[in-house]
Write a protein that binds this DNA or RNA. Structure first.
Lengths: 192, 192
DNA sequence: GTCTATATAGAGATAGAC
DNA sequence: GTCTATCTCTATATAGAC
């Protein structure tokens, strides 16, 4: 049994809110309502909104890469790894009423209003994802499971952009199943 | 010589701002500064911010589809059509200091805070783009210029998501040239 | 049409009691 | 650690003079 402190609850509520409406539309009042704590109390844990957002990115990145790493290091086939990777994103779209998108994806859209530290870490999230994806794609191509032209890093950037973009585009149609269709189409493109 | 009225100047300033920072971070003060008009005067032309955003989407969609239509109806090769289509997005990234992204792309990220009318029209923008893109892809496949599995509509959704996502991802790296790399990689995937 | 002045609401943040 | 109370700033929006 892991104790869930207030700090963690604040992060949970803030993350949920940001993934739905974005950082600029998320307010301390929203967190206050969700956690059942006064607005002022939030400042005890996170002095400013900027630091709260930065903490959000850190925790999200850590958790996400932990999941990605377990996929990359598994004994699954490259194709299954790619599918599982895509499912990490697809799962977010299914959460709750209208679905969430990737935290760093939505913050990427709001990048111009982020702090320098946040900007750096969002950029790092993008790059690290591309790196892991490139590993999967590269392994798959060497084994003959995948077939594509060009270097695997470019291909990884393409796939990552595709997934981040698909979350936003598909959400406008309230269609989680459309994300799956895009995933399958992507798999068709790289499987010989 | 076309007369450029205040209403048009307001839309220009607002669009520029939204494409850089998003609708939630764009304020009447920003427009006031850019146009050289008082905040209150903006309300004469657009009674509320919601209507201003809706007008923004309408004008942007109309202009964008006019450009897309001229590509679709041209005598260019399917591959060149696809390239030209991608260049419409790439051109935005090159505008000004840190570049802009697609208006409807960034509003798609902020979708949960948009008015119902705006939401509908952003969704329509996505669907219409996919439709035109599907025409290009379908024509290319029939001619043998493109080669891909599945239906052209799924492929169109994939390509559109890819371009919208790439704008956001690439901007974090201040790399316009990376967008071109993704475009080339995408072309490689569909050209036999 | 554009201005000045103002209304009203909400944001993030701080001080100090408990 | 959390509360109440309050501050300051900025946002959108309105009223009425010019």
């Amino acid at each position: 049994m892991k104790k869930v402190g207030t700090k963690s609850k604040i992060l949970d509520a803030a993350q949920d809110c940001v993934q739905r409406v974005g950082a600029n539309a998320m307010s301390y009042q929203d967190i206050s309502d969700a956690v059942g704590i006064q607005k002022a109390s939030i400042h005890y844990h996170f002095p400013t909104k900027e630091r709260l957002i930065e903490a959000l990115i850190d925790r999200y990145s850590e958790r996400f890469f932990s999941l990605v790493q377990s996929i990359v290091e598994s004994e699954l086939s490259p194709e299954t790894k790619l599918r599982r990777y895509g499912l990490l994103f697809e799962a977010m779209l299914s959460e709750g009423e209208r679905g969430k998108v990737c935290l760093c994806g939505i913050l990427g859209a709001e990048l111009a209003t982020m702090s320098p530290v946040a900007t750096d870490n969002i950029r790092r999230f993008f790059r690290e994802n591309e790196k892991r994806l490139a590993e999967i794609l590269d392994e798959g191509r060497r084994e003959g499971a995948f077939k594509f032209e060009g270097d695997s890093r470019s291909m990884a950037t393409l796939v990552f952009s595709l997934l981040e973009g698909a979350m936003l585009v598909v959400r406008a149609d309230e269609g989680t199943q459309r994300f799956g269709a895009i995933m399958r189409q992507m798999i068709k493109l790289v499987c010989p």
